[in-house]
Amino acid sequence: MKAAAFDYARPASGDEAVALLAAGTGMAKALGGGQSLGPMMNLRLAQPDSLVDLRAIAELRGCRRDGTGGMETVLIGACTTHADIEDGRFDDPSRGFLPRVAAGIAYRAVRNRGTVGGSLAHADPAADWVNAMAVAGADILVQGPAGRRTVAAAGWLQGAFTPALAEDEIVLGVRLAQWSAAARWSYYKFNRKTGEFAEAIAAFVVDPARDLCRGLIGALDGPPHVIADARGLLAALQAGDPAAADAELVAAGLPPGSYEHHIHRAALQRAAAQLKGNA
């Protein structure tokens, strides 16, 4: 099918983009790579009156190292593509975590055009960046009519396809702290077919230098379940006690005995084993 008619604008600045979105009174959509919005519009699941293409905004492209709150951080521009990250065409603060996540998104042709900011704004709970950025402890930078603000990635999803982003706001980028040389991570994604959205995602990020051991149960019906202190869970899973995960799985809304409980538990076990292997 073909998309319904819409107007198109390609602003050169974030301010201009925000003004265009505000003028659209809810019927204007920001466009990144369009790799989710494109199919939705072709299927007429989405019929915005206008698209505001963010790809010409210089500030949203590229990636730079900066310092925030006394920490060494890296800001990844919203229009950075998944392929940019997969190929390492950015200053990676995550010791290979982000490139590994990027390489598992959809297919190469989609990764060549799809953007980090677009994926976050689309907010599919089964997509990779909403989950990976949550377990990475990233911050998402947003600009709106009232100025700029920062949202912790762990709190980004309000529900399925509902990000903490107003209709007249745009994603500027994602900020991550530099991980230490001792940092380790694992990311396990369960798909029935290569390149499709995940049925279950589990991940661990451990960075002793920052006293951090975070876990994630993702690809849920709603927001991902972040386990702020996963030391006990990780130790139990690595010691071969999968039942230790049940409390967190129930807290993530996965009732015992259900198919979802089972596959998310298997994903957690495999992520824990992968982390051990990465030691």
């Binding site: 198109y8 369009g34 494109g38 190469r108 042709a109 055009r113």
Partner: peptide
Amino acid sequence: PTRSCITWAVS
């Protein structure tokens, strides 16, 4: 490589 069916010509 790019999917031309989900890439707007205008973009």
